[in-house]
Design a protein around this nucleic acid. Structure first.
Lengths: 341, 341
DNA sequence: GCCTTTTATGGTAGCGCTGTCATAAATCTT
DNA sequence: AAGATTTATGACAGCGCTACCATAAAAGGC
């Protein structure tokens, strides 16, 4: 016996067929009106539109996606939502997607490539139009899926490497290097570094390496570093600096992996009565607003997070076809001199 | 002529039929293995699982969703991603959804009920299992859709009102009231308020009202308020306080709609040499980590954002059926005494 | 041993939409 | 005016999966 229509749906939802019947056209014509695709006579369009409002018709995207083998979803895989950095990226993506039919589906990987792979696979089940993820480093399985080519791929934040399709971001190695050069030029010599526990944050590591390289070039090296055994936070920065200075009082500048921790460093100095900049330089990364609103603006590097997200989404929308060659877009960075180093 | 199978798919994707064929079972049996549903003999399951790995099969959720009239998507509509508050909520939601089959699809409404309505409708096209949104205030059309009942609904942050299904949050009116009582008890009498431009942030308005009510009860009223003509930010708080004090030097406490602005207020005091707490009390809202990591921890109210998101998602997962009565979960709030008021 | 219940599997018909092809009418060429 | 092109519409199958039965075999009850 055939399944009764809508048997498993509580109140009947109007379908395209209902719209078509009411408007006195065929289903496919109604479909064309909904999708604004193909030539439609104005009078016909009007009739269909009226029918749609009258019935309160909402298209079923699952059916559409199934029939056309492609969805309007854009998978976004972010490492973390614990600070404002990735929400900023997401905001950029969302801004580019407003007024388009695309919708972001988000997943959080906790900086773990295996989790990234698992979430990616579950996202692919929706036949996304594009996949956005952070960094260029993925598991082999994930990379294989990404290279399959049925969807566009954007790898964000980092451009030091070979992207699958599009990469949008900056060179973190260079940012670290420029940080070192900038601070050396300003007379700092005895460098400290306050790290946090995320060993898989490739970008923080790249900045660290760049910094070391700049020091090396100048015949210097890190005097001290401390790894705070927990996630990055303002408190982590504050405590890390306290520990660092207790063991190495002679430091004249401390570089932090991000602004949150750097602000913690400043708070420690305020608390301990250390003159920031004169006695101890503090340098961060990200260029958060709050750091710039302080009485003594934080010296840091502005990463263009919103721009990265927005640019990536825009590029992905430009064409559904993956171009023959990989694209790298360098959004660059700005050194903010600030007043703390 | 029938459409050639997979004609519009570049490289052929394996389907359930391929898996079933390889495993020597029927499609429906393979489907049951994939969904871990119904009784399956261990040997059969193993064969199907092997076939799945061998083919690299990824289920097509659009087809599944269409056939079963329900998806594993959870629509999340947030007012903003510009500060850490809603990312925290999202993090809570995501945490509850990890290890489940559900995936959050997110939209940003910019505190605009009309945008909320538009995004809601476009999300409903995916037949979501649940919808999560902020606040209890929606357009009539949106409310009608939400009440339709084919999916669970959670309204977050606010519990002062009548929810559609589940509400998880706190009473912002009461938070404002308690703020007022707390500050009055500490001896403050000449109150200022620094507002920002989002007039549609109902929760900030509710806190404001609660504060005014507490003042009224004590025979007091706001001495001054200033509305910063831009979005909330640390800089907004800093500038707003400067303006407020220029016009009303006699204020002894200023309440801010959130911690970001309150920190701006503290930064102004630091800059202008005003002794915070002794000369001018500063009070925020949210209980952000950064405020607590300052040398002088911010006096504020801790809103339990992560908990709200997590609780909501968990409650939604408990049953697919909407219960006969509406549920309100009060996650409460804590007054953080801090050192600034 | 016969009947009931449970366990394991399959056949089949859609879910609601869109790709493909076909067709008819209107418009443009020369 | 006859053909070529463009514009507007429709018929129909099928996207990949699962709900709804049906069935057969195994297990349990007395």
């Amino acid at each position: 016996m055939p399944r009764k229509r809508n048997a498993h749906r509580s109140p009947e939802m109007p379908t395209l067929a209902d719209v078509a019947r009411l408007a006195g056209v065929s289903e496919i014509t109604a479909s064309r009106v909904v999708r604004a695709q193909g030539p439609i006579a104005d009078a016909t369009r009007a009739r269909v539109l009226t029918a749609i409002t009258e019935l309160g018709y909402i298209p079923n995207r699952a059916a559409g996606s199934l029939a056309s083998a492609g969805s309007t979803l854009m998978s976004v895989l972010l490492p973390s939502l614990s600070n404002i950095v990735f929400p900023d990226v997401l905001r950029g993506i969302h801004t580019a997607l407003t007024e388009t039919a695309f919708q972001p589906v988000i997943g959080v990987t906790d900086y773990d490539p295996l989790i990234e792979e698992r979430i990616l696979v579950s996202f692919l089940a929706w036949q996304p139009a594009a996949v956005i993820l952070a960094g260029l480093h993925h598991t082999p399985t994930a990379r294989r899926h990404l290279e399959h080519g049925r969807f566009r791929v954007a790898e964000l934040m980092d451009i030091d490497g070979e992207p699958v399709d599009i990469a949008v971001g900056m060179s973190h190695r260079q940012a670290g290097y420029e940080t070192g050069k900038h601070l050396i030029q300003r007379g700092y010599r005895r460098f400290g570094y306050a790290r946090h526990n995320v060993t898989t944050d490739d970008r923080a590591s790249a900045r660290y390496e760049g910094l070391c390289w700049a020091l090396h070039e100048a015949g210097l090296s890190l005097v001290a570093e401390h790894c705070y055994p927990d996630a990055s936070s303002t408190k982590a920065g504050r405590d890390a600096l306290a520990i660092l200075l207790a063991a190495h009082p002679g430091l004249d500048v401390v570089v932090f992996p991000n602004d949150d921790m750097a602000m913690g460093g400043i708070f420690h100095c305020m608390h301990a009565g250390i003159a920031v900049k004169e006695k101890l330089g503090i340098f961060g990364f990200n260029g958060l607003d709050i750091g710039q609103a302080m009485p003594m603006p934080l010296s840091t590097i502005l990463s263009k997070r919103f721009l990265i997200g927005k640019t990536a989404a825009e590029k992905l929308l430009e064409s559904r076809e993956r171009p023959p060659e990989k694209t790298i877009i360098n959004t660059g960075f700005d050194i903010i001199e600030g007043a703390t180093a």
